[in-house]
């Protein structure tokens, strides 16, 4: 039910210095659990990209395999201690493989896992965790820095347990979660108002409308061309989103958003009527296993030769796929 997407881009400073992208993201679905994880390797730690990679993979597997155990444990301090211990065990193994010090593998960590109506949230260090509920974006966990901008806490820090933030609860109307590294937060989080950029809601909506591959490709393009220009640091993001009563898909977009998705001008004559036809087409395709030109033509009360133009446009935009025998189906199902 959840759709998961991720993106990580090497920062300008790291390109210049020849250091690898130290931001790592991982998404995982298994055992009825969906998990997104992000780790930002410490700039001062020479192999932190390996540490970040290992930690994100580990937490995805751990929460997928043992979600109920973690969720049902009432003692939050015990959860923090056990999780840090397991992370350090993973990093100790990796340290031996790489013949390095534990501190060389330091990274932040941001995780959200969801199963049925329950969620878990873990945060060590900086970066931001946000959520989307009833059409509103809110911050679930703010960046944890010391007094100065270049000070934060890592998985290997002696105070990892005391600075770790954890949360759990029922999802209710929560439709999405987003994790971002501090590099991305420079663009999507206001340090002055502690609020998130509205474009994250757009990304969540688009994730529900388009196939994962297209969203990840578009995200990567946006990050490479826009987001990394705001910082020297690596930029990464992982999000998970699901349809809810307040947003099910294309038909719940605003007129402006529909025009944006369909690549048509808002000032086109009879735009309202045209958008209503597009909406009917998308609703029918989303609700039925497959549709034909003729069935869609009947639905929108338009001759097939005109209906074909509408179909070709939604096909071109990637909202639907053509199947055998002249049938069409949604791209996201």
């Amino acid at each position: 039910m959840w759709k998961l997407v991720k993106c990580a881009v090497q920062g300008r400073g790291h390109v210049k210095a020849g250091t690898p992208c130290q931001d790592k993201v991982c998404t995982y679905t298994g055992n009825g659990v969906s998990v997104i994880a992000l780790a930002d390797g410490a700039g001062s730690a020479r192999l932190s990209h390996f540490g970040a990679q290992r930690v994100t993979q580990f937490v995805c597997e751990e929460f997928s395999d043992h979600f109920d155990d973690w969720f049902q444990e009432p003692d939050g301090v015990l959860v923090k201690k056990q999780l840090v211990q397991k992370i350090l065990e993973q990093l100790t193994d990796l340290r031996q493989e790489l013949n390095c010090e534990l501190r060389d593998l330091a990274s932040t960590l941001l995780v959200v896992a969801a199963k049925e109506d329950c969620f878990l949230l873990i945060h060590i260090g900086d970066g931001v965790i946000g959520y989307w509920r009833d059409g509103e974006l809110k911050v679930a966990s703010h960046p944890e820095n010391g007094e100065f901008a270049n000070i934060t806490f890592f998985t290997t820090s002696s105070n990892a347990i005391s600075t770790m933030k954890i949360a759990k609860g029922n999802l209710g109307n929560i439709a999405g979660f987003v994790l971002m590294s501090d590099g991305t937060a420079e663009s999507f989080y206001s340090h002055q108002t502690s609020s998130l950029a509205g474009v994250l809601a757009k990304i969540m909506k688009m994730t529900l409308i388009f196939p994962q591959e297209k969203i990840e490709k578009d995200l990567l393009e946006s990050f490479e061309q826009v987001v990394i220009q705001r910082t020297h640091d690596d930029c990464s993001l992982a999000l998970m989103v699901r349809p809810t009563d307040s947003f099910t898909g294309f038909e719940d977009l605003s007129q402006e958003e529909k025009c944006d998705v369909l690549e048509i001008n808002m000032l086109t004559p009879d735009i309202k009527k045209k958008l209503a036809r597009y909406t009917k087409i998308m609703r029918m395709i989303n609700r039925r296993p497959s549709c034909t030109l003729v069935s869609l033509s009947r639905e929108i009360h338009l001759k097939p030769k005109y209906t074909r133009k509408y179909l070709m446009n939604v096909l071109r935009c990637g909202l639907i796929q053509s199947c055998k025998n002249g049938h069409y189906k949604s791209s996201v199902k």
Binding site: L196, V199, L219, V226, D260
Partner: peptide, 18 residues
């Protein structure tokens, strides 16, 4: 989509770290 998923105008303006 008409434009990029994320455009410059969509971003938060944070002051440079001093």
């Amino acid at each position: 989509m008409n434009n990029q998923l994320v455009e410059l105008k969509d971003l938060k303006n944070n002051p440079t770290h001093r």
